[in-house]
Amino acid sequence: MTTTRNSRPIPILMYHQCATPPAKGTPFRSLTVDPAVFARHMRWLKAMGYRGLSMRDLQPYLRGEKQGKVFGLTFDDGFVNVAENAVPIMADLGFTATNYFVAAQVGGTNAWDAEKGVPTAQLMDGAQIRAWAKAGHEVGSHTIAHANLKECSADQAREQIGGSRKMLQDVSGESVDAFCYPYGYYLPEQCALVAESGYTNATTTRRGRVQPGQDMMELSRVHVLRSTHFASMMIKLFTPREELRGR
């Protein structure tokens, strides 16, 4: 079967929390997007004819088997506030998303952020993860312990990457095919390890849109922050400027 390739780069949006942002001066405050702001982002894109897709649903477009006005929609860490606040918005618009869960913190908190002064926030438990999947969204992996893979030995990295996939499959009852490198830190050889562990794709924190032919184990994303407004969203999504920053 002959395939065609998208003529335009595909943006994959990166969100974290969907909640009322903490007080000014709080570390990493920018990673919490107010639900009303998230709703505006999604409705702007819907009005422009775009569809938000999970990494699973985006695969045919990334491979060039389909064409269309689509963007990837991802959330890091698995926060409960995403289930509470973002899911109803996505359901209303017919969008799907991938959430990258930290396997050992299912039902726990963002403990890896504590030493940075980031406020504690609850993560989805097993029942909430299964509800996420039942709603049509995708369960992805963010390692077992939100690990800095650059600091892991080969055996540790294998366990963090492959072990988390098995743990999350056991919790969700779904195939876990999408991976995300915590902090965006990884070694080149770990990309091969992700593929060997059974994942079909992996996202980074590298800024930019996915170009035709880009390595599926090192996919760029578009950072969406608390302060991202319409003009900056359009720059991030539809101009080369985003690819030129933060490399």
Rank of each mutant, 00 (worst) to 15 (best):
L62Q: 05
R63P: 07
R63A: 15
R63Y: 09
G64T: 12
E65D: 14
E65M: 08
E65W: 10
K66M: 14
K66D: 14
Q67S: 14
F71W: 12
F71R: 11
G72K: 08
G72V: 12
L73V: 08
T74E: 02
F75E: 03
F75G: 01
D76A: 12
G78Q: 03
F79I: 11
V82R: 01
A83M: 11
E84C: 05
N85S: 14
V87F: 07
V87S: 06
V87E: 01
V87H: 03
M90A: 06
M90I: 01
A91T: 12
D92S: 15
D92K: 14
L93G: 05
T96L: 07
T98F: 03
N99F: 01
N99A: 15
Y100F: 15
Y100R: 04
F101L: 14
F101G: 00
V102I: 15
A103Q: 08
Q105T: 04
V106Q: 06
G107Q: 02
G107H: 01
G108V: 04
W112P: 03
W112G: 09
D113V: 01
E115Q: 13
E115G: 11
K116Q: 13
P119L: 06
P119K: 12
T120Q: 15
T120S: 15
M124C: 15
D125K: 06
A127R: 14
Q128T: 05
Q128A: 10
I129C: 06
R130P: 05
W132P: 06
V139A: 02
G140R: 02
G140S: 13
S141D: 10
S141C: 09
S141T: 07
S141A: 15
H142V: 05
H142R: 09
T143C: 13
I144H: 04
H146I: 05
H146V: 11
A147I: 03
A147T: 11
N148G: 08
K150H: 11
K150Y: 00
E151K: 15
C152N: 02
A154T: 10
R158V: 02
E159C: 07
Q160V: 08
G163F: 03
G163S: 11
S164F: 02
K166E: 11
K166S: 14
K166M: 10
K166Q: 14
L168K: 06
D170N: 14
V171D: 02
S172Q: 06
G173A: 10
G173R: 11
E174C: 15
S175D: 13
V176K: 00
V176T: 06
D177S: 15
F179W: 04
F179V: 02
C180M: 04
C180R: 02
C180T: 12
G184C: 12
G184K: 05
G184E: 10
G184A: 13
P188L: 09
E189D: 14
E189I: 00
Q190D: 10
Q190A: 13
Q190L: 06
Q190C: 07
A192S: 12
L193Q: 07
V194Q: 09
A195K: 12
A195D: 10
A195T: 10
E196Q: 15
E196W: 00
S197I: 07
T200K: 13
T200Y: 13
